[in-house]
Design a protein around this nucleic acid. Structure first.
Length: 221
DNA sequence: GACCAGGCACATC
DNA sequence: GATGTGCATGGT
């Protein structure tokens, strides 16, 4: 029930938008950094922060770990919430260096379950950030749920908008073949159509998913 | 000038 | 367990 619709939505999105080439990042470390920087923040702003770090020649775990907090905060300023994100990045790096000598390769030896538990234990890494790191930095078969996922599926009447994160993740993982490449593409496509059309105030004209009848029922005054 | 963005932790009830 | 709030820059 509903699983065919979930596949149908994927097909429409992929036909409309094609490959999204996610995650936009050159290295495993850059992906992880981006996962924290993009929390409740547009990728456009994150790119500025990443560029600052690269221009300073600091895009490496050990270099960021050694950097004073106020320096890091200034570099990532364009990404917003820069004081909090500085602490989150530092806490992730402290975990990485305290437990794995700074080696992401060593982290990669953890089982899916252990990796997720470890990531969720880091202050500043919640479920979406952990799952983004799992999927996009480590290629684990985890569906990354975000605000767009919930909004889009709820506007198609497939879920309650305030559906629990884990329930929604299980729904998607159950409706789709367990394939990291597919999960990668689908999450990126949700973000793509969400940004363009499925905003809090919907912009349904020309949206390829065409949930206008449902949405107008929900939002008309 | 509002609205919004690829969340999360923490306080309070 | 559910709900509310602070965190902050930058594009539309």
């Amino acid at each position: 029930m509903g699983s065919n619709k979930i596949r149908d939505i994927y097909d429409i999105l992929f036909k409309t938008f094609g490959h999204q080439h996610w995650w936009p990042g050159d290295t495993q470390f850059e992906i992880i950094l981006g996962a924290i920087l993009t929390q409740n923040t547009s990728w456009q702003n994150v790119e500025k922060a990443i560029r600052n770090i690269k221009n300073a020649g600091l895009m490496a775990a050990a270099k960021i770990y050694a950097l004073p907090e106020d320096c890091l905060a200034q570099l990532i300023r364009p990404a917003g919430y820069f004081n909090i994100k500085t602490k989150r990045i530092k806490s992730l790096l402290k975990w990485l260096f305290d437990n794995y000598e700074g080696s992401l390769e060593a982290v990669g030896n953890l089982s899916d379950h252990a990796l997720r538990e470890q990531l969720l234990g880091i202050k500043g890494v919640g479920r979406e950030t952990a799952d983004s790191i799992m999927l996009y930095a480590f290629g684990r078969v985890v569906f990354v749920v975000d605000a767009y996922t919930a909004r889009i599926l709820s506007r198609h009447g497939l879920i309650d908008e305030y559906c629990d994160y884990e329930q929604l993740r299980e729904l998607l993982e159950g409706a789709l073949p367990a394939d990291a490449v597919l999960f990668n593409e689908y999450h990126a496509l949700f973000v793509r159509v969400g940004k363009d059309y499925c905003r809090p105030k919907p912009r349904c004209a020309d949206c390829p998913l065409n949930c206008l009848p449902i949405v107008s029922g929900l939002f008309e005054q």
